[in-house]
Computed example of a mutant assay.
Amino acid sequence: MKSLQDALYNWLTIKVVVDARPDDLAAKETLDFFDGMLSTEHEVSNIDIITDDVMYYLSYQQGEETKKARYPRELIEIMLDQINKEPEKYEDYPIEN
């Protein structure tokens, strides 16, 4: 994924799902994939998330610089909203210990 903005968007979208469904193995594996992409392809680390009623605000390190991004909640939470509306279509694949 060439665009940092797209990678951050996808990472945050699946992070919201993982936070809501911590035992979902597929979601966790997808988050790990985007973590790796952000780290290796974009040199991103130390992502902090702050939310309000309207937006998600990210602060992160890219190399030596601290940068920021923001995304509307309705766009980030769309996947989780879809899962919650039709849970029968999104089976929770738990992490096996």
Rank of each mutant, 00 (worst) to 15 (best):
E64D: 07
S39H: 12
K68W: 00
I47S: 00
E86R: 14
K85I: 12
L75G: 08
E86W: 15
R73K: 13
L38H: 06
D35K: 14
D81T: 13
L58K: 05
L80T: 01
I83N: 04
L58A: 07
H42F: 15
D92R: 07
D48W: 00
T30F: 06
S39M: 13
T66C: 13
A69K: 00
D53Q: 15
P72F: 09
E64G: 03
E96R: 09
V54I: 13
I78Y: 14
T40V: 15
N84R: 15
Q82F: 04
K89A: 05
N46E: 11
D81R: 12
K68H: 08
E91N: 05
Q61K: 14
T51I: 08
E91V: 06
Y71I: 03
T30Y: 07
G63V: 05
L75P: 01
M79F: 11
A27I: 01
Y71G: 03
E29T: 11
Y90V: 01
K68T: 08
M37C: 04
N46G: 12
I76H: 01
K67Q: 15
L80A: 06
R70M: 14
S45M: 14
P87Q: 05
K67H: 12
I49Q: 02
I50V: 12
H42S: 04
A69P: 00
G36H: 06
T51S: 07
T40E: 14
E43R: 13
K68F: 07
R73F: 10
E43W: 05
N46A: 11
K85Q: 14
R70L: 08
K28L: 10
I95P: 02
Y56M: 09
G36A: 04
I47P: 02
E43M: 09
D81Y: 07
N46H: 09
Q61A: 10
Y90S: 03
I95L: 13
F34I: 02
M55N: 11
P72C: 07
A27G: 06
L80I: 08
E74Q: 14
E64N: 05
T40I: 11
K89P: 00
I95S: 02
I47E: 01
E64L: 05
I47Q: 02
T40K: 12
E65R: 09
Q82G: 00
D92P: 00
E88F: 10
L38E: 04
E41M: 11
Y56G: 05
E86L: 13
Y60D: 01
R73A: 13
D52F: 02
R70V: 03
Y71L: 10
Y71P: 04
E96W: 08
D53I: 10
G63A: 08
P72V: 08
I95M: 06
I78Q: 15
Y57M: 13
Y93N: 14
D48G: 05
T30G: 08
F34Y: 15
E65Y: 06
N84M: 12
E77R: 02
E64R: 01
V54Y: 10
V44L: 00
K89R: 09
V44W: 03
I49A: 01
E88K: 14
Y60W: 06
K68V: 05
Y90C: 03
Y57R: 15
Y90A: 03
R70K: 13
N84Q: 13
A69V: 00
V44M: 01
P94F: 05
A27E: 02
E96I: 10
R70Y: 10
E96S: 10
A69T: 04
Y56R: 07
